[in-house]
Design a protein around this nucleic acid. Structure first.
Lengths: 294, 294
DNA sequence: CACGACCGATACCTTGGAGGTATGGATCTG
DNA sequence: CAGATCCATACCTCCAAGGTATCGGTCGTG
């Protein structure tokens, strides 16, 4: 099966209408009909039931819709990464949330990485779509928080385990406490993240500034890894939540990636994180002394 | 990028020789050279450095070799599953190790599944390549033992947690014990499995009968989930190893699979397993009374 | 019930590209 | 330096992908 045939089928399977699918694909309807018929002949399987009024998927068609989408995306991701690897100014693209750098380890990681012989210039992309950037070939590696992020299909290196704090307005009833429990937060609204739409009950948020804004307005509170303290505005404060499940910062990359530049980056980040983890007291003290105004 | 172009490139990238690659692909060398040149032109990237004496991969070429192999396999897996879904005698193919059925839960699962409206006939394939069967589209689901098996990229449903036993010849110095610790096994040789070649120090084994044979000969001992007791020969015995990490039997399937037949199977197996887990005493007693001669 | 609108399939044409063979040009070996 | 090796190029053939025109079947509507 050629990727063009697959792309054609997917478009028809999604539209369930040859004419509209052809228009979206930028070709005429007859060649599309023929391409689908040829694909069915080659697979030896009927993918679509069609009358002159209605197009429906067969069981085989449903299978190819589900499996083929993933397969086509992985081909396109391979193309994107290959293009990026070949461009003169090749870069290692690292996706992360703003502030999701494990308590400021990133500058040290980057500095150390640049001294590696296999190093490439590192480019960072920010935003909540880190996982998607990895899947579509836009990024080579990502800093993610487990278990919050979906790590299936990725190779990961655990960097550090972080306890979580709840971020509150300074005027909040719990703001003065030394610690709070999850039970204390029962009545509060928590933000919903785009990639986990079924968790939380508050508004959908798409970037970190928005979260801080909503907290400041008293609309929500958020439970975040401790290193986010560095990003607090002066009207917010953070209180430890000892019984919130600790969060693990991981470096993740597509399993099949084998580039020397990436391998060196994984090695260096793991080494830097290990060095920091070996000095828990120093780090803990450093975090304690981070002023709330970040 | 078309899959034919990708397959051509992968062959050249593996052989690093246009003539041999063309021969393996069953085409002449000039069309292959042209196909690669056109692919490079379309990607806008040089994939191979070639003199008349030597072919080497560029950084972009290495990327496409690694990423493209996985992508092409996923396309081919999609084709296989689509073909199977469309055949008149469509079946749900379940891959498993012989005996890896979680203490005999499988018959009950199958009986219950057959009563589902969306059920398909279930076909079982055995062998140590269960993970590979899932990846290449030969199987729809697999029973695997975590953390022994590599589950990345799969959707999983945990079925049951099993403690592990060490399987020994009846004449072994530890055979009479009520339990042994991992430390007691320090001097023993453990089998190496094909999919985990770096674990264990003994001979490579490829099927369950072979393992039992090697244990009976006194060449190795093996630490296995408790349900394997059912498969013991009369000259072997099993002793609990409380400090061996417990093993979790999981049902795994490709993340993107969405067929109703598979969804029903997942639902039924989870329900059967949950029912058994809710009666731990009954199951424990049942396992205790399984005679060693299986 | 008849007519028009809609929609996928078919017929027929043009053209790009995938495959072949023959051969050129570069590089290493003896 | 001669020969072997190997990738690229030139040139040919042919299939199939894409286009337009049109057919035939199905539904909604007056």
């Amino acid at each position: 099966m050629e990727t063009r045939e697959l792309a054609y089928f997917l478009e028809v399977a999604r539209e369930l209408h040859f004419g509209r699918a052809a228009e979206r694909l930028g070709i005429a309807q007859p060649p599309l009909s023929r391409a689908i018929a040829r694909l069915e002949r080659r697979l030896g399987v009927r993918l679509l039931e069609r009358t002159s009024r209605r197009v429906t998927l067969t069981a085989a068609g449903e299978t190819l819709l589900a499996e083929g989408e993933a397969a086509l995306e992985s081909v396109q991701a391979a193309v994107r990464r290959t293009r990026r690897a070949g461009q003169s100014g090749a870069r290692l693209v690292l996706a992360m949330k703003p502030g999701g750098d494990g308590g400021g380890l990133l500058p040290e990681m980057l500095a150390e990485y640049e001294r590696e012989p296999d190093a490439l210039p590192v480019e960072m992309v920010f935003g909540y779509g880190a996982r998607q950037a990895l899947d579509d070939g836009t990024a080579d590696a990502a800093l993610l928080y487990a278990p919050r992020a979906n790590l299936t299909g990725l190779a990961v290196e655990e960097l550090m385990v972080e306890p979580q704090d709840v971020v509150l307005p300074r005027t909040h009833r719990l703001a003065g406490r030394d610690s709070v429990s999850m039970a204390d937060l029962a009545g509060e609204r928590l933000p919903r993240l785009p990639h986990r739409p079924d968790e939380g009950d508050g508004p959908l948020v798409t970037d970190g500034g928005q979260v801080m804004q909503l907290i400041a307005l008293g609309r929500i509170v958020a439970v975040l890894p401790r290193s986010y303290r560095r990003l607090l505005r002066e009207d917010l404060t953070a209180v430890p939540v000892p019984d919130a499940p600790p969060t693990t910062l991981v470096l993740a990359w597509p399993e099949q990636s084998r580039s020397r530049a990436l391998a060196a980056f994984v090695r260096v980040t793991a080494a830097v994180a290990a060095r920091h983890n070996a000095r828990p007291d120093a780090d803990a003290r450093a975090l304690q002394t981070v002023p709330d105004l970040g």
